[in-house]
Design a protein around this nucleic acid. Structure first.
Lengths: 337, 337
DNA sequence: CTGAAAGCGCTTACAG
DNA sequence: CTGAAAGCGCTTACAG
């Protein structure tokens, strides 16, 4: 059966559909009794306003589009939870799309968003600019980038403070007495890697420790990339006693490489990650890491968008501080150098 | 600037907007040259059809609504990935909402979906029926439930084969030589718990092993609930040598309780989970578990919905087989009973 | 306080 | 092959 429309209600209430529209929207123009009567009928008929029809005249859809590389990535999932939570608070709905990092797919996603006339778009951790920056810049709606990996001309972004995070992580290791601290980065040269590495270097400088290029190696942001990177560090004549990893996934791979060698974390080598994914609590040992407040970041991205939609000016680049979470993957070195 | 409409294009092309509509939709009625000319203009002006306007006349939105308890739950995230992937193949978009298991929130979600006139709804692992079954049954669109936790009157569902999964998990332990096999269930008495427990019992029966009620205890589906449940098992006069857990999260808690006691997995006690979450590969030791093909399940749920939308009859209840993944958390018991 | 009218951007019989 | 007209379900000036 078809849904009741404003006209059906008008017929039953013996008023014009304009009156129904006003009553339902709570217009002060309509008398209280008429409003009550109309609302009652709406209730009884299970009336639901058609957003499509409303959108046509208001040119607002109360819907925002969210693009993630993959929602199965726990980072993205937490961010999206924050976004959706905040959206719900503001009576917005969320259209979700995975790009799978495929340019062709990303084009489709943006097109689908445009056709559905989303009010705004949030893009998470994508290599925007590299791939589909052009598309996005043609979008006629506000866009907020979250942890985007390429410096770009977009006005609004929410980013974790990678530099300070890298600094804190490395200082933690140095503070424990480590003198030979390595860094396993991300070989794709994304901005976050550069910045975390920058924090690492600053921490070394602050502690008057020499920077040794052989202590820097690269994974791919996943366990399978972290493991060989760690192995190459372990094969050095003088291996490091601690390693700061680009992210938790890399750290997971590094830890498995360490135990494959018959060494132990943290006794033989300390490991620090970045992100504080759920898995960090349950790895063996639980991982010391820099927490990104992903849910909050998602929420902030949404709020930024709402501000923009309200026509308000908004801080173009919000930087969120991370937080060092010390668990059992780090301790003082056995043999202080 | 406003987006170009069909009228704008008509003006430029000096044709009626009907012709533009037809040309853009590829109607065979329009001559090739006219079509080409119109398409070119559409391209140049960055025209995007308004789905809202189209929906108004076709009463289809090419959008489906997906409700999850929390997208941050890795199970839900994988399922949604499968759904969105399949949706993309069929040119559908996905409206995502978290219910947070709050009835009030669930009502809002369903309402938002109705207002946006989604073509169909997929609900994942919710306690539908218990909470908002009524609401859903009033929806006028097809609904597919995925791993729903309450038997209900809904016609269409996709479910993991819990019984066989529980059977396989327990048989694996029995096959390794275990005679004292415990079960840590979910205290909320959901259907999946009952069924997995059923598989466990069948496996005991098949092996002519006695069922001991003291070997059945309950967590809450999360690590924090699994740990105390495991502790109580370990405190028994004759503790089990193996335990099958309702899910991976419970198993994670169980394993931490075991190591807190100074015991080791699997040498002192074997542990099997259910789900095969990502974390199962990186727990210590990596967890033997029953894999739910979550992504496929999501995809199947979406395809079922598409069938339904096409007016086709569809298998009302699809049961998906799980797969036992043997890792390092299980081995033969030290002292065969 | 209420109604008639126009219009948002489309699709689709109906005519030609 | 193309156009004029009606209509999808709303909102909102404009009149009264």
């Amino acid at each position: 059966m078809k849904r009741a429309s404003i006209k059906d209600i008008a017929r039953i209430a013996r008023v014009s559909h304009s009156t129904v529209s006003r009553a339902l929207r709570g217009s002060p123009l309509i008398s209280e009794e008429t409003t009550a009567r109309i609302r009652k009928i709406a209730e009884e008929t299970g009336y639901r306003p058609s957003f499509a029809a409303r959108s046509l005249v208001t040119s607002r859809t109360a819907t925002i589009g969210v693009v993630v590389t993959s929602i199965a990535d726990p980072f993205a999932a937490e961010v999206v939870l924050g976004i959706e939570d905040a959206a719900n608070d503001h009576d917005y709905s969320v259209l979700l799309a995975n790009s799978n990092a495929q340019p062709e797919r990303e084009m489709r996603v943006v097109r689908a968003f445009e056709e559905r006339r989303v009010d705004g778009i949030i893009v998470t951790s994508s290599r925007v600019g590299a791939i589909y920056g052009d598309m996005l810049s043609q979008a006629r709606v506000p866009i907020v980038l979250l942890n985007n990996q390429h410096p770009s001309e977009f006005m609004h972004s929410v980013m974790i403070d990678n530099v300070t995070g890298g600094l804190d992580a490395t200082r933690h290791l140095v503070g424990l007495g480590h003198r030979r601290v390595a860094y396993i980065g991300d070989r794709f040269g994304c901005q976050s890697d550069t910045e975390r590495f920058g924090g690492y270097r600053s921490a070394l400088d602050l502690a008057y420790l020499p920077f040794l290029p052989e202590y820097v190696t690269h994974g791919d942001g996943k366990p399978d990339g972290g493991a060989p990177a760690m192995e190459s560090l372990l094969s050095l004549p003088v291996p490091p006693t601690a390693v700061f990893c680009y992210n938790d996934m890399t750290a997971l791979g590094a830890m498995s490489a360490i135990s494959s060698r018959g060494l132990r974390v943290p006794d033989d080598i300390s490991v620090v990650g970045f992100d504080d994914l759920f898995v960090a609590q349950y790895s063996s040992p639980p991982l010391t890491t820099v927490r990104q407040p992903m849910r909050d970041m998602g929420r902030i991205a949404l709020e930024t968008l709402i501000h923009l939609l309200g026509g308000a000016a908004s801080e173009p680049n919000v930087k969120i501080p991370g937080q060092l979470i010390v668990r059992q993957s780090t301790c003082a070195p056995k043999e202080p150098a």
